[in-house]
Design a protein around this nucleic acid. Structure first.
Lengths: 202, 202
DNA sequence: ACCTACGTCTACCAATTGGTAGAGAGATTT
DNA sequence: AAATCTCTCTACCAATTGGTAGACGTAGGT
């Protein structure tokens, strides 16, 4: 037990909620998986809903930290975009449950979207400002940054999370196909984001 | 009761599973919502799982029919792609639960992906062949059709379903923003799919 | 008139759900 | 040494879960 109980619960819950979903994960199942009793979970988190919210907070923190780190490297234009996409793919491989949780939270009937959104909002704003800045500098295709960000978000998370679809389509999710998908996606984004008045040195 | 009971159950179940999710929807809740008893549901469908599978089948049928109809119009190149995107957006507005169900089924831990995939596979193959043909004819950017199809699928469904994200980002999902999103997405796809004309710098 | 099939219902049931109450063991503080 | 605090546990509980058994009424077919 290197990790304190509270952290262990959070980790396991993130994985369970991110893959099986919130409703499909009972506290008993979670506890058994951790080798503890359900009441221990309820000691650390007053209710199942509270645990969910704590999981969301933890995930949001992780995500924001990751992107802040990547954004602070000061890349510009398509290079920055490409770097971010690379990060998301790394996330999809190393911590798929994190992107799974994002999908779970942003589901149509969800009540917790706002909680996640509120914490991610500053990073989104920064990204929007970045896009606007790069557009003004002529390094990106000029369009509505918010719309663009939404498209990029959907595309990247979709591509990264929907390995099941890939598998179901008969494409084994090996490392090679993952790389190929990332490259295809980057080509996709480069084409869509390249400044319209070409001659853009890249 | 214009619709026979079995159909009514399927319709309500599709909506519930597509928005709240399978695990979060109890048979009792579904029955109450229909003004019948749970046992009536279990008369028509031997188990909850069987109902789910019937819902998937129905949804697959609807999806395939829609796309076959669209594909049979014989458009080419980007026009065909744009027409499909239009259909998906119409779907997202008129029957959001259908796309929601697709998302539910394609979730990481899902066991039912294959059932949906199997029924949609022919349409996917046809789409892949279409892309290949159009690439050969020089009307689309040449790349791996399967990868491309995956990217397009993720992007379109992602953009169409993630209205919650849009709302959480402070963008009210009005008709106008929906149109704007579709246009942005089409611009996105056009840029990515346009045949590569020339000098391969980049 | 009788029988059978069909569709919906009431009555249950065992298992599981999230959650409460509080005991008890180990530390830490007083 | 006594008291308090921290953490995990056992023992329950009421509500809900998916599912079974079978009664009841209606409609046709004979």
């Amino acid at each position: 037990m290197t990790q304190p109980t509270r952290e262990r619960i959070l980790t396991a819950a993130l994985r369970a909620y991110g893959t099986d979903g919130f409703a499909a994960t009972s506290l008993d199942a979670l506890a058994e998986q951790l080798g503890i009793r359900k009441q221990t979970i309820l000691y650390w988190f007053p209710s199942k809903q509270a645990l969910f919210e704590a999981v969301i907070d933890a995930a949001a923190l992780d995500l924001v930290k990751l992107f802040e780190a990547e954004a602070s490297r000061g890349l510009t234009g398509l290079d920055q975009v490409e770097a971010i996409v690379g990060q998301v793919f790394r996330l999809a491989v190393r911590r798929p449950e994190l992107l799974g949780l994002v999908r779970e939270v942003t589901r149509p009937g969800s009540l917790s979207v706002d909680r996640l959104a509120q914490q991610v909002a500053p990073a989104f704003d920064r990204a929007r400002n970045f896009l606007q800045r790069e557009m003004d500098a002529g390094r990106l295709h000029r369009s509505d940054p918010t719309m663009l960000l939404l498209s990029m978000y959907s595309t990247v998370v979709g591509v990264a999370t929907e390995l099941e679809v890939q598998r179901a389509m008969g494409l084994a999710p090996t490392l090679r196909t993952t790389v190929a998908r990332r490259q295809e996606l980057i080509r996709f984004l480069r084409a869509a984001l390249a400044p319209q008045v070409q001659r853009g040195r890249n």
